[in-house]
Design a protein around this nucleic acid. Structure first.
Lengths: 215, 215
DNA sequence: TCATACATCACCCAAAAGGGTGATATTGGC
DNA sequence: GCCAATATCACCCTTTTGGGTGATGTATGA
């Protein structure tokens, strides 16, 4: 088992970062980097046409991000292991990836040794998560604000309204944007505040930015 | 000149990333990585005790960030060239660094070749900025919102009020927090909106978060 | 000294936000 | 079929925001 070569695909739009991982791994005899991709779409194509064992992907990427990519991979090519690497750790992201049965989650501040360790473990079928990730996730179970404790589920329409709010539109303008009544927008805004636990639109704005809803 | 060795210090709290740059540069004969640091304070100590030519630093770091580090370096050790590397590019950051007479600014999605190119140019005394950085900066000169065009100067009191607003306090609460009249808080809020070019408190919130005023 | 920015406050007024309740129609899951 | 969530709208009411104007004292710098 450990004599086999691990066929690996790197996915990250940060060339410098990818060059870095590449440089770290290229001298490891049992690891074979079969390709690199700058975004999820590209990665999917390569994954479908190659005999991959493992995929290492960033989360923040243009076109198709790491979460969507992971979802696609796990659905269509469940034999490929997936390790996610990101600069930041927030509870919602960790939770999403956990549900997708991701195999590993590393922060970009983890070192060479931990990276190799993670790759080997995941290849053998184990899971690997950075300590920081586990800490953040466990802490979240005792989180202070509503948005952290109970994962907030916003409906598609609520998300649309939220996006408009963050664009500094007032209720009247949002109603026109979405072709609905002012009263309806009012209702959505109030429901958003209740769900998110915000006191006013400022709270909604902060939530949206933290969740990357506006990006 | 080009036969000399470039003595270089890497500063980044992302170990994996640093390992990456390290791996890229370690085989380059005329580059000597004299050390690595995880934060600005550590970097300053090393810089003071070594004969450095060039420092490559991330912006986002704990304790002392890349901007503070650059400021200290340029003040106390002006002979050391500084290249900043970051994942993101926003106008305010670019502008701050420009004023600090930084020598280079790269995004993390720049490749190996560009990195080497930048190091060589900067070592020779030239400046090097990623295309993306130049694009963002030039665009900002014709930016849409006031906050980008003219750098906004907020008075200390206005900053206090802004912080309270971002904490989801309403005018009444802010007045109590700062022991002033509700009318005065109103005035400050209105002046903030005028200066920043925001349509409402949502705009103020976004500005505050972008500027890191709440961090 | 004069101008400017700052911090403070007041008043008027319109528009918007927020809090509560209730109603209807549609949908998807169990 | 029933239940829950969603999306839609209406009406009540109070509080808050936002826009405009003007006034006063203080401090600072040209």
């Amino acid at each position: 088992m450990s004599n086999e070569t691990i066929k690996l695909l790197l996915v990250d739009d940060h060339h410098m970062f990818m060059d870095g991982i590449y440089a770290i791994l290229k001298d490891i005899s049992h690891i074979d980097i079969v390709g690199t991709a700058n975004n999820g779409n590209q990665a999917l194509k390569i994954a479908k046409s190659s005999a991959l064992d493992l995929l290492i992907t960033d989360i923040e990427m243009p076109e198709m991000d790491g979460i969507q990519l992971s979802k696609s991979i796990k659905k269509t090519l469940p034999n490929i292991k997936v390790i996610v690497v990101s600069s930041h750790s927030n509870v919602q992201t960790i939770d999403k990836l956990r549900k997708l049965q991701i195999d590993g989650y590393l922060l970009k501040n983890t070192g060479k040794i931990e990276l190799l360790n993670a790759i080997n473990k995941v290849y053998k079928g184990e899971k690997y998560f950075s300590e920081e990730i586990l800490r953040v996730y466990n802490q979240s179970l005792f989180g202070t604000n509503k948005a952290e404790k109970e994962k907030v589920k916003l409906s598609p329409r609520e998300l649309e309204v939220l996006k408009c709010i963050v664009q500094e539109q007032n209720t009247q303008e949002i109603a026109e944007s979405l072709n609905i009544s002012v009263n309806t927008v009012d209702t959505h805004r109030k429901n958003l505040m209740r769900k998110i636990g915000a006191k006013n639109v400022v709270g909604l704005t902060k939530y949206a930015i933290q969740q990357g809803i506006i990006a």
